[in-house]
């Protein structure tokens, strides 16, 4: 039988009554197992036009490595901003071109923020950044149905450190390929 780690042991401070004794008993419901919730599974790659696996470490066109190395899977933002910078728009235009060539590929855009903000506000800020990238890609011909978005707020930084260089790296939107391409 599983019990809650947070369960309070049989309780308390009942009290002897010299003035008045209130009889009052509660039953604790039987403990039940914790259900931590099952995250949904990422989309499985499907479709006949999927390029097949890497050979001898070479970068296969249409693969995740091809996208990461030759296109760029991350764009960066200014502090408390979700405007697409000019350096980011070049990367995103290349992402749109690549995604047009491989129409079976599904992506998830993950918005990130640096540590200089509260957790909740930064979740909202990361969502804005993910949406800014999504809008850019849609405007460049990628169907909305191929794009998921999420915000990681400041919870999944890529760089250690409490300095401008680390903050600049952590203010980003990352495009993850979730299906339709080999590694």
């Amino acid at each position: 039988m599983t019990t809650s780690p947070f369960k309070t042991t049989a309780i308390v401070v009942a009290a002897v009554a010299m003035i008045a004794a209130a009889g009052c008993t509660r039953r604790t419901p039987p403990p039940t197992p914790v259900d931590p919730g099952t995250p949904s599974q990422p989309t499985t790659p499907t479709g006949p036009s999927v390029p097949t696996g890497p050979v001898d470490g070479a970068v296969i066109p249409g693969s995740v490595r091809d996208f990461t190395i030759n296109v760029g899977d991350r764009v960066y933002f200014d502090f408390d901003s979700y405007s697409i910078r000019s350096d980011a728009s070049r990367v995103l235009a290349a992402q749109a071109g690549w995604l047009s060539r491989y129409p079976q590929v599904q992506i998830r855009i993950e918005g990130n923020a640096d540590e200089r903000g509260t957790r909740e506000y930064n979740l909202a800020l990361g969502a804005r950044r993910a949406e800014a990238v999504r809008s850019f890609l849609i405007a460049n011909g990628i169907p909305a149905s191929r794009i998921d978005t999420i915000s990681y707020g400041k919870e999944r930084p890529i760089a250690f450190g409490s300095n401008e260089q680390a903050w600049a790296q952590n203010r980003n939107a990352h495009t993850t390929i979730t299906g339709g391409a080999p590694q």
Binding site: S4, F6, T8, T28, P36, G37, P39, I150
Partner: peptide, 30 residues
Amino acid sequence: LGEDYTRIYLLDLETGRQESLGEFEGVVFA
């Protein structure tokens, strides 16, 4: 906050049982 989901949970400290508030389109938080 998972890799591909956000969820709001309700946790009963006595029983340890927990449930999701629901599945939403978009990030849920706070």
